[in-house]
Amino acid sequence: MQKETLTHLGLYLAKKSVNKADVARKTGLSTYRISQLSINTKSHLRVDELFLIALAIEADPAELLAFVCEDVSLPLKEKVNQ
């Protein structure tokens, strides 16, 4: 059996002690979807879902976005000698 790991969203919700069922009720997202976004690294969080979750937990959407995307960066380009 594969061990479950938390996604960045899952870590954020755990850090804030958020009740996922409450978030689901407030956002209209299913509890299954919230759980998948929290534990399945292959789940893709849509921006509208992120915004709704931020509103439901009374968090700054920009702060939540920055936390969720902390590992995202522009690709490095090699410098070309001229």
Rank of each mutant, 00 (worst) to 15 (best):
K42N: 15
I57A: 02
E49A: 10
V68A: 07
K3Q: 13
A62R: 03
L55Y: 02
S30F: 11
Y12Q: 11
T41L: 11
R33F: 09
V47R: 14
A62L: 06
C69W: 04
C69D: 12
V23F: 05
T31D: 14
K3W: 02
T31V: 14
K3L: 04
N19T: 09
M1N: 07
K42R: 11
T41P: 04
I34W: 02
I57Q: 02
A56Y: 04
E78N: 09
S35P: 04
T5C: 03
V47G: 13
A14T: 12
L50N: 07
L13F: 08
D60K: 01
D22T: 15
L52N: 03
T41M: 12
L65M: 10
Q2K: 10
A59C: 04
K26M: 11
P61F: 01
D60V: 00
L29H: 01
L11K: 12
V72N: 09
A24K: 03
A66V: 03
L9W: 00
K20N: 14
E78R: 09
R25T: 13
K79C: 08
V18M: 10
V68S: 02
S38R: 05
A62W: 01
E78F: 08
E58S: 03
A62I: 01
S43M: 12
D60L: 01
V68D: 01
N19L: 08
S73Q: 12
D48L: 05
I39N: 00
V47S: 15
L13G: 01
V47I: 11
K15H: 13
Y32M: 11
V68Y: 04
L55Q: 14
S38E: 05
L76C: 08
L45P: 04
A54Q: 06
K16F: 11
S43V: 10
C69T: 15
I34T: 09
D48Q: 06
D48M: 07
L65T: 05
E4I: 01
D71N: 12
H8I: 00
V18T: 07
K42Q: 15
K26T: 09
Y12E: 13
D71I: 02
A14Q: 12
V47C: 15
A21M: 10
S43G: 09
Y12P: 02
D48H: 06
I39L: 00
